[in-house]
Every structure is written in C-alpha cells, then in structure tokens.
Amino acid sequence: MTRKRDERARDRAMTGVFMAATVLTIGLLVYIVVYILQKGLHVVTPAFLLESPTEMGRAGGIYPAIIGTIAVTGLAILIAAPVGVATAVFLTEYTHESAVSRLIRFGTENLAGIPSIIFGLFGFLFFVIYLDLGWSIISGALTLAAMILPTIVRTSEEAIRAVPTAYREISYALGSTRWQTVTGAVLPSAVPGIVTGIILAVGRGIGETAAVIFTAGASLGIPASIFDPVRTLPVHFYILAREGISMENAYGTAAVLIVVILLINIGAYWAMNRFAAKSNV
C-alpha cells in the first residue's frame, strides 16, 4: 500500500513539475512581449512611424524601414505564393506518389531545413553578385521567397488535401478537365487554409534578418524602384541595438515589430479557427 501511496505522491509531484514547465514557457512569452512593449511603446508615435531617421537612427523615426519591410516581404509573397500554391496543386492534383513527386518533396523539405544565414549567403552570391541585381528590394525579396516557399507549399498542400474528394469527383463527372476542377471545385474550398499559410509566411518574412541583411542592404533611403536597396525593420533594429546607436529607438522599433507580428499570427489562428468552424456547419 505504501508503494501505491508513493506512486500517488510522485504523480502529484510530476504534475507540478510539468505545470511549472508550462507556466515558465508561457511566462517567458508574456515576459518578452510585455518587456518590449513596456519599454518601447511610448516611443511609438505617429511621427516615429512616419518620419525618416536622422543621425543614423539616433533620432527621428523608422519610416524608411517600414517601407523597406513592406516592399521586401510583399514582393517575396507575390513571388512565393503562386509558386508555392502551384507546387501544392501539382503534388496533390497532378501526380500520384512518383519519382517526380518524391524529388519535389525532397526539395521543399530540405529547403525548409536550411538556416536563414545560408539563404543570406546564397542570395548575396546569386542575386546580388551573379545576377547583378545589387543590394535591392528584388534581391531581398527573391531570397526571402526561397526561404518561405516550403512553408507555403506545406500549408497549401494540407489545405488542398482537406478538400473533400467528392467535390473533385462531382466536377470530373460533369466533364470538367483537371484544371477546371482545380480552379472550380478544389481551390475555392482550400483558399482559407492557403491564406492562413500565406499570413504565417508574411509573419516569418517580416521578422527575418539574416537572409535580408546581405541581400536587401541596409540603406536608410526611400526606395524609388525594386532595384534600390532598403533596410527592413529587423535589420534596422539589429543595427540600432548592436551598434548601441539608440536603445530608445531600438525598443520602439522592436515594439512595432512585436505588435505587427503578434497581430499577424493571432489573425492567422483566428482565420484558421473561423474557417474550420464554418466548414463544419
């Protein structure tokens, strides 16, 4: 009987330990977010968002970095989303398990495992130097697109596979071609899941530093075209903090980043759950 009592005590103890681990993990999340917001939010004024920095960022705002982030991430999504969705469509609708599909999977899975600094090196060598695109929005966007491609492929594939087979059969049985079935019966139902994946990819792109710093550059000017260099928010933040230029403005930039990324991630979860609930009706 004592053995049994020992087991009970141990059970309670381990429950306590695991709960502590969870509280600590969640606590860390809350701590990081609150810390940054507490120190940085008061810096974030309309002027901070809409003015260019002066004295290398010691004073003034972060407007060019906001523009740079939107340009690089936006263009990266414009490139990666069609490629990613097309890849997912090919894998789900145009091929069964085959040598080709295994090759494609091998590509996306291994791309997903490559560290962002390697993407940065590659982007610098290939886009900046070899294709002579220079440090520019387009170089940064292409590098970032390669990096987020696996995420978009995976989430799109999941979303497409979740579309009931019956929809495809109905469409085919009515004499639709494969492409007509994809566009008419499959993709409309998969759009919510695909969009969720793209939103998550946007979140990842906005926060990325290592892949962008060597490809998009660190210029604080306002770009006139996609061939101009820019500085994104995380790069700006990194330079401010690491070079010790202005902790005040670093906190402000971090606060902007955190708020935007939290909103994007929460938005993606909200969208996912909402559509999941809707499709159950």
Partner: peptide, 10 residues
C-alpha cells in the same frame, strides 16, 4: 513568431 533579433536583444 517572435523575430530572432528580439530574442537576442532581450
């Protein structure tokens, strides 16, 4: 989702 630079900064 928190950018790695923010972790480093904290």
């Amino acid at each position: 989702g928190i950018p790695s630079v923010v972790y480093g900064f904290i």
